[in-house]
Design a protein around this nucleic acid. Structure first.
Ligand SMILES: [Zn+2]
Ligand SMILES: [Zn+2]
Ligand SMILES: [Zn+2]
Ligand SMILES: [Zn+2]
Lengths: 582, 582
DNA sequence: GAAGGTCCAGCGTCCACTAGA
DNA sequence: GTCTAGTGGACGCTGGACCTT
């Protein structure tokens, strides 16, 4: 209404500089606030003088009666005063005396609450994780952390023991089906590890992994409530990273060939065939013929060890778990632990090669040397598994982070020497023969994982935090908001979890270290996808076309489009039903 | 959808008079805006009562939790919210109060994040024990944080004011020369902003940026003590990310063309030519001819405004700095502030387009609206600059994170329409014409930066933390250890810094939020490199050969090799002396 | 014109501070 | 010195006015 707002106008009440129009009158902040408070609190002032006290910047506080009178006189409109509003927060400026939230907060804009109608029942805003809560929680896992930990263990259980794991034909099927983790688990740790026949050409474990990955995702309500395309985007975005992480987690430190050689007496659990697939710990030596030296022995031995030892060992929790956590493990974990104890072979240090089926390009790999090792972990030895894989093969370079500047030019990834095995003996210091993708995976993911000595809970949380990536390409903005919220929630859980086990400084350090793995994992995943693209372009299948359907970029080469540099991509999803030999 | 629009319908939420259907529900303006804001900013409210507070016109503001619940209950559709609709912002807004560009506008619509987000929640959870420490530290910046903050400001100072900045000819020269930041700064904020002639074909600012980047790196003793090849690796690894971050940081929220139009009276500082290069805030409108509408005006005006206003304003600290920090700023910062105050034009709120020189493909861009804004930041308004650039040009798609699945297939980045400018008028709702790289930059880096409302200190720390990337390719293992240590140290500084300004919960949340930007930045950087490769392959120059010398992969196409997927790459280094037109 | 978005004056809340008890 | 009612500058929120598609 009234026009303009002069530049250096003065307060109509006290002549101080006006900060704008307040209650219809140009006035300063002080008078504005004074007016509101006086009315809101229904104050009645008394003039000590003759009701004609001067009111100006210098003495405006001298007589409140007169000040209020003047406010009214100059036309301040009481109708412009609104009701109380909700409490607000501050993002800038930090409180000086923060401490105690002596609930007296909100001390009072309103003196005597005169029925201002503010429904504020308020006070003690406990919600926020206070230290108190944390202490209380100290003796029990955070429900979310607990759920994820159990989930992770069930994941491994199903992956390794579920004999009749249905492998979804398409992504759509996978997303629509109910999550297997939300139903009674159909198998137990005491069951045999699933096996795949030597002639099975399918990328056995990879298929299972992807299928379960989607089931895993579906356990998150936030995920379930996402629109279909966003689900696809999410699953696609994290797929490669998910797999890489699974591979990197629980991998033994290194092979001790002597042990391997020295224990052919181990009970051979695998009887039917020369053993493939030992759960997440599997051997790729489907062809022992071209293995060198002790490979035949290994091949046999691994069947026994990988099933009883490594699998149990790697999939399970180590014995060194911190007390709190150990005693609080959800049921499944306890069972696992028992099995460990009961298994005589758990003391072996055998390292297991891997396999994803018997594809020509697949091969087993011993993680060389002690690539990394516990450092800050609160967990004991390596209770990890070798879960490697490498689809592409080429005359790679030794691993390590030394000047691998040519990787990028190796485009075709020609699968050279498909049946060649990496050096497996103790002497094989370097990973010659290892693809650059694998190299990256080792250096960027596996090694750091070991150095951190991730606990299962931490691992599970990181998986989830990464899965709920707000920057997932193609996410609807509404969904993005949900994802942001979920991720934030999970981050808080992680931090709280760490606070239980470490002092504040160690906690934040570890917190950062864990989060900092993300860029590296994404990078390794991107590298992986980059290579996979080549393969994908040659073989488009079910999954691919499905993904194509549900995505926008419906070009013939849409698969490629989906493989953003950043996170994982749909590439690996195509493995579920792909493969020439299949 | 539903029919008609009743006459005196009431708001389904608060019973106020509805102004129409909003988000599928007849509602008032208030509820409409409230709903959008709550979701866009991902707010989480807490009911002080029992989640059944009344919601009506009178008390609708009393409990935001219940108000939002009711919005949802009556069916407001979150999917109707169009997140990134018009990034360009209004260009024709007619303001009531013309003149007097009231300085501190910009309150911003979006608050998002809520790192300390839900205010009412965190604000008071003082519990954390080290309040004492906080108080003690409150009065002094951590030495490292302080150094980095000063460094950042000096960086900007030299970048914008140093008239005789020597641009190293080769990377080697750059690495061997002493850091300019370790010598007395040769210029002051009161100096004129450096200018480049209109005919200068060199990527003026980019060159300066890179040169100073290396000087910046050399201020770290950890870096200086690294072997030469590792220095190269480090610098190379973070280069793209560094640039992207610089661009994203300090970018104005959006343009107000009317202001631009209305003030051709501004003192034209740029006299020689129609002005290019306005420090980090520059215009790309080197060709006003093919600009539509008001572009000519802009082109001219920007020369004046970008130099005096935005530059001073953006490069400098805002006035909103929190008191503590404000009074503790290192000298250079104080000077900056003075200048702000003394410069009459600094009060302008003009948003500036950008430029990196007058490359055909470069163009200016208005950052639209208030994308994000303070939420957890403890610093004031946007004191950012538009520091965009886009080398590649192509018929891009609107930005936003919505389904941009084709980006990856746009390989050749052919600089289509080299002289075409992005639509700048009000009609150009989206960033059509913007390269996918830019799109990623905006979505993954700039937008989040704003939402976080980074302080200069936080920004400086993140730069350093990312620079000391243990996973830098080609790092010697001894060096890697040093890098890890340095990074860890910096992370600790960051956390401590955050603890000073936030309570423990908000601190860890913000800590994570900051660290979580890393993957996104790397991703954007990778995308940038991907595109740059094409150009690099066409033009190899000085820097390139130098880089080749010092690196291992000495193939003809070595440049490409250096551009790992992960972090930044040497790509941009080649810009120092490149460019066809040069 | 309808519906989604942005702007910004103006209103309420916060909280550092300060006289006075 | 402690406690407390009161102040007012800084800022978060709101919603009517407007801009855009
Ligand atoms: Zn006054
Ligand atoms: Zn009086
Ligand atoms: Zn309403
Ligand atoms: Zn309520």
């Amino acid at each position: 209404m009234s026009e303009k707002l002069p530049p250096g106008t003065l307060c109509a009440v006290c002549e101080d500089v006006a900060t704008g129009k307040h209650y219809s009158v140009a006035s300063c902040n002080g008078c504005k606030t004074f007016f509101r408070r006086a009315l809101v609190n229904n104050r009645e002032f008394i003039c000590q003088g003759n009701k004609d006290c001067p009111v100006n910047k210098g003495v405006r506080c001298a007589c409140r009666y007169c000040r209020l009178q003047k406010c009214l006189a100059v036309g301040m409109d009481k109708n412009s005063i609104q009701n109380d509003r909700d409490r607000i927060g501050y993002t800038k400026r930090k409180r000086k005396h923060d401490d105690h939230e002596s609930d007296d907060r909100h001390h009072s804009e309103h003196v005597h609450d005169g029925s201002s109608g503010s429904p504020q029942v308020n006070d003690n805003s406990p919600e926020n994780g206070d230290i108190k809560d944390i202490k209380i929680d100290l003796n029990c896992l955070d429900p979310i952390a607990e759920r994820l930990t159990t989930l992770e263990n069930n994941f491994t259980l199903l992956l390794s023991r579920c004999g009749d794991l249905h492998l979804y034909a398409t992504l759509e099927d996978a997303l629509n089906a109910p999550s297997r983790f939300m139903q009674p688990i159909s198998c137990e740790w005491s069951d045999h590890v699933v096996l795949t026949s030597r002639d099975d050409k399918m990328p056995f474990w990879r298929q299972r992994l992807i299928a379960l990955y989607i089931d895993w995702a579906k356990t998150f309500s936030t995920f379930r409530s996402l629109p279909y395309t966003d689900k696809v985007a999410m699953v696609t975005n994290h797929a490669s990273s998910f797999m890489i992480m699974c591979e990197a987690f629980r991998t033994p430190e290194h092979a001790k060939s002597d042990v391997v050689r020295r224990r052919p007496d181990l009970p051979t659990i695998v009887s039917n065939n020369s053993g493939q697939g030992c759960s997440r710990v599997s051997t790729a030596f489907s062809n022992s013929d071209n293995a060198e030296g002790t490979h035949d022995d290994l091949s046999t031995l691994l069947n026994a060890t990988c099933i009883q030892q490594s699998i149990n060992k790697g999939i399970l929790f180590g014995d060194e778990k911190p007390a709190e956590e150990k005693t609080l493990l959800p049921l499944p974990i306890r069972e696992i632990k028992q099995e460990i104890i009961e298994t005589p072979t758990t003391t072996g240090m055998i390292q297991l090669p891997t396999e994803y089926g018997n594809l020509p390009a697949d091969y087993g790999l011993w993680i060389p040397q002690d690539y990394g090792h516990p450092t800050a972990g609160h967990e004991g030895k390596s209770d990890m598994h070798n879960f490697f894989e490498a689809r592409e093969f080429c005359a790679g370079r030794p691993s390590s982070c030394n000047l691998n500047l040519n990787e990028r030019t190796m485009r075709t990834v020609p699968m050279i020497e498909p049946r060649q095995f990496p050096i497996l003996t103790a002497n094989s210091a370097s990973l010659s023969g290892i693809t650059p993708v694998l190299t990256m995976m080792i250096d960027l993911v596996m090694k750091p994982f070991r150095q951190l000595n991730f606990s299962t809970t931490e691992f599970a949380l990181l998986q989830a935090i990464m899965f709920f990536d707000p920057d997932t390409e193609g996410l609807d903005s509404a969904s993005q908001r949900n994802v942001i919220a979920e991720q934030k929630k999970l981050l808080a859980v992680l931090f709280r979890h760490l606070q239980k086990a470490y002092n504040i400084n160690a906690a934040h350090e570890r917190y950062a270290a864990i989060i900092l793995r993300m860029p590296s994992i994404r990078r390794a995943a991107a590298k992986k996808n980059e290579s996979l693209q080549v393969l994908d372009m040659l073989q488009l299948h079910e999954m691919n076309s499905l993904v194509k359907e549900t995505s926008l970029g419906v070009r013939p080469s849409s698969v490629q489009q989906r493989m953003g540099i950043g996170g994982g991509a749909g590439g690996c999803l195509t493995f579920a039903n792909e493969h020439p030999e299949a």
